[in-house]
Amino acid sequence: MNTRNVIEIKDLTAKYDDRVILNKISLDIKKGEIFVILGSSGGGKTTLLKHIIGLLRPVSGEITVLGKDILKMELEEFEDVLKKIGVLFQGGALLNSMEVWENVAMPLEQHTKLPESTIRNIVKQKLSLVNLRHAYRLFPSELSGGMKKRVALARAIVMDPEILFFDEPSAGLDPITAAELDDLILDLQKKLGITLVVVTHELESIKRIADRILYLQKGQNIFCGTIEQAKALGNEEIDRFFGWKEKTKNI
């Protein structure tokens, strides 16, 4: 595996009005790994994600995505970076006025000059990848929550991105669907060699998919590394999050 860093963040500080949401966060994400951002609610997980994909601007700090400083570039340059990443939003964020296939085809139609038939074939392939052949002509409002997320996943990977961001992929899904989504994520990493950045607090999926984790507590980076290292660290909050403390008590 190539260990080139695809995302580098230095001293990122973010505020909403006067409240500090992120305090001097620094981290590197390596190519091809599954990087999980976790922490308790209100810890700044989603805010960090939104900064990396350029939806929010930090007060200070540096964010480098695919070797380019995204804070110092023009909108058009940034759009070129955005074409190489995919984002899966919490609620899916599909365009409700379009059918499923149109939603998935949209990035291709807008950013490539591929002929219509090729686009349709790519869309069909991505939809079968997420097991949604039957939803091709449905509208987003006709889908269940899990199906919407899978369509959004198909849309996020339709341009074969280099980095894929997930905002709470399994929130609101039943354990079986959530596990299927995790399989899908692992599959994608293996097949396409995509780097994945996942925001979640589902213990099961963290344990299954994470290569490295970042633990945020009230906007502070309190740990960044593998799960084994986290276990060895013995930080009280992290132990409580993973439920390790009780286990040691029982022994």
Partner: peptide, 14 residues
Amino acid sequence: ITEELDALKVMALN
């Protein structure tokens, strides 16, 4: 409200 605008932005669609 449904984050569709954010989704468009990150798909590099203004």
